[in-house]
Write a protein that binds this DNA or RNA. Structure first.
Lengths: 218, 218
DNA sequence: TACCACAAAAGTGTCGACAATATAGTGGCA
DNA sequence: TGCCACTATATTGTCGACACTTTTGTGGTA
């Protein structure tokens, strides 16, 4: 889906490590030993090093010279800060999507929404996870701003997913979020950039507040 | 100023390469040969590789597997997209700065503005370059959002500087920009988050339009 | 001449070993 | 006992060599 093709050994190691970190099989805050990982994954240390460096670019690990790399630790403040960035960037993405998406792309977006509607109606929980990601994903791509796309999909989304998975946020907010999605798509369909941005920002802000209260973070 | 301390050889190579790229001594769009650079800088290829990888994280070079790395090329659309991201992120930074800066930091910001005022009054051009950067820098730091800070200072600002240097944007807009800065600081002093964000976004938008018309980009 | 196959060259990807730095552990001294 | 210096160990940083892929260049064939 994200069109990430692993051609090189470092790629594969990067993806495996990333999955293990996001899903929590390598615990948050733990140390990443190059030698250890190289034996575990059966590749040379150079490959592991490169993979870790890329993980650092994704903000999934922190590295200090001559000391080593650690998986980031998940904190309520970190989550809040992450969502502030998301609000800012995805708001802009929605604005640009309203401007730059083709009519076909918008039609497809409406279809996606309809299919989600069916699922919500039938009480399926599929929507929450993959559906939500897919919705945001399409709008981000629709912005057609390469920097924005790269920052969100390579830089932020895996960290968001890590929070979601490890703090177990599969909560409610399904139907509410669906309505919000619907309004955003409407605004995009009307090519109302201002409104699209505002609604997207609210949508993310609500979801942040929903999570923050759950975690007891300001 | 940016508290970047080069402890390792890869660090130094990274900084040297980055400077050479930003200042145009390595032309935009040109290929980066690992072997060539390793002989030029007198370090091993592994070090150059790591440096190039970090440059990729900064969006200053693009790398393809088994083919190599090229310095990004500067295009009008690229500049527009970059400024859209800046608008979004720095707008949020201003909002958060209005919320999170200490009174002391705000006082210092006002002093910075005053000293700039003296310089503008005396017709010095110092303001435009370092002064402008310093102003934005302080607000970004003042946001106290680590993701935001990292994205802007590590990820985007060097690319902005690259555009500025290589397309020669030392134009006018000095006094106008100064007024905009003044209003932003006022909003921050009043802890008006909404206004601070709006003004910062307009400030960057104006500056984008100013540049875009100069380059003949939509 | 145009096109394809194949060989040669250059470049990147990967590896294991050595050097430099940080950490842990030991012993001595006040 | 508590603290400092020193040694030993483990980990990261750097290097040169080899493996694999891409590109270049050469020759043959239609």
């Amino acid at each position: 889906m994200f069109s990430e093709q692993a051609v090189t050994s470092a790629d594969k190691t990067f993806y495996r490590l990333r999955t293990d970190i996001v899903e929590g099989q390598i615990p948050a805050g733990s140390k990443l030993s190059e030698t250890e990982l190289s034996t575990k994954y059966q590749v040379s240390r150079a490959v592991v090093r490169e993979a870790i460096n890329r993980l650092e670019s994704c903000n999934l690990v922190e590295r200090k010279a001559n000391i080593g790399a650690r998986v980031v630790s998940l904190t309520p403040q970190g989550l809040v800060q992450l969502y502030q960035v998301r609000e800012s960037l995805e708001g802009m993405a929605a604005r640009l999507a309203a401007k730059n998406m083709t009519d076909d792309e918008i039609a497809a977006l409406n279809e996606l929404l309809s299919s989600h509607f069916q699922e919500v109606k039938q009480g399926q929980s599929y929507y929450q996870e993959a559906g939500d990601v897919d919705f945001h994903y399409r709008i981000i791509i629709g912005s057609k701003n390469q920097h924005l796309i790269s920052m969100l999909l390579n830089g932020i989304y895996h960290l968001v997913r890590m929070y979601r998975v490890q703090l177990g946020m599969a909560g409610p907010r399904v139907t509410t979020a669906f309505d919000e999605h619907r309004h955003i798509v409407q605004a995009i369909s009307h090519r109302d950039e201002e409104l699209a941005e505002m609604l997207m920002r609210r949508h993310i802000l609500y979801s942040k507040n929903n999570i923050a209260t759950k975690l007891g973070a300001g």
